[in-house]
Design a protein around this nucleic acid. Structure first.
Lengths: 112, 112
DNA sequence: ACGTTACATCGTAATATTGCGATATGGTGT
DNA sequence: ACACCATATCGCAATATTACGATGTAACGT
């Protein structure tokens, strides 16, 4: 009970759900938008920008990194993060494929 | 703690996160794809199709309905569900806007 | 070597999600 | 009125997520 029955669904359905989960938290959306604006940043930039603890930011970065949507390069003391362009395009494409499956048909079948 | 600090983020960031959350579970992705294929269906169609209890399906439908992505019309005994075309397009557009914020630049700033 | 800075990870608490059985609601057919 | 559908909701248990402070690790400056 409570445990997701993800094994019953297709690989594609699970992949899409996972991609969506990454951007299903406003902090991660905000981090990604910040990263787009600044091209790159380090963890402490985000700690300054957002009202979240360093450990919390670090955890969100870990999630984003796990999904591949960002990448980080160690540069001496710091760790420089940026968008992973390839994965970004992949996720964008997959979401588009999903949303393009539905074509509006003239006759609406239901209403509220 | 553990409570999401959603109040610190913009309306747009929260909206995008909420839209994403709806499709961040494989069962809901599967339900939506089923709904696209069949144009419309009732709850018991889904109960037959997926290895989930009726109450679980009903709950996922509730989530989808809350987000507005589907709508349901009571038809006697049954409740006919289908995609809400308008909301579908809205979510698609919002996600596209988000993903189009990032343009690949030639020089990669980080690597793994 | 020592303190500082940057970041990750651990441990824990609060909260949210997922799932199911049981039960409620409300329309259908008899 | 009654049994029978279809669906919604309630109550609960298992699990996942979010968040933070404390602590660990590793490079830096002195």
């Amino acid at each position: 009970m409570g445990k997701s029955k993800i094994e019953y669904f297709s690989e594609n359905q699970n992949k899409l759900a996972q991609f969506s989960k990454v951007i299903s938290h406003p902090a991660r959306v905000a981090i990604l938008e910040f990263l787009i604006k600044r091209k790159q940043c380090i963890c402490s930039d985000l700690v300054m920008e957002f009202p979240l603890a360093q450990s919390t930011i670090s955890q969100h970065l870990k999630e984003l990194k796990k999904a591949g949507i960002i990448k980080g390069k160690i540069s001496g003391n710091e760790k420089c993060y940026c968008i992973n362009a390839e994965v970004w395009q992949t996720i964008k494409k997959e979401l588009n494929l999903f949303f393009n499956q539905f074509e509006k048909n003239k006759e609406e079948c239901c209403s509220d």
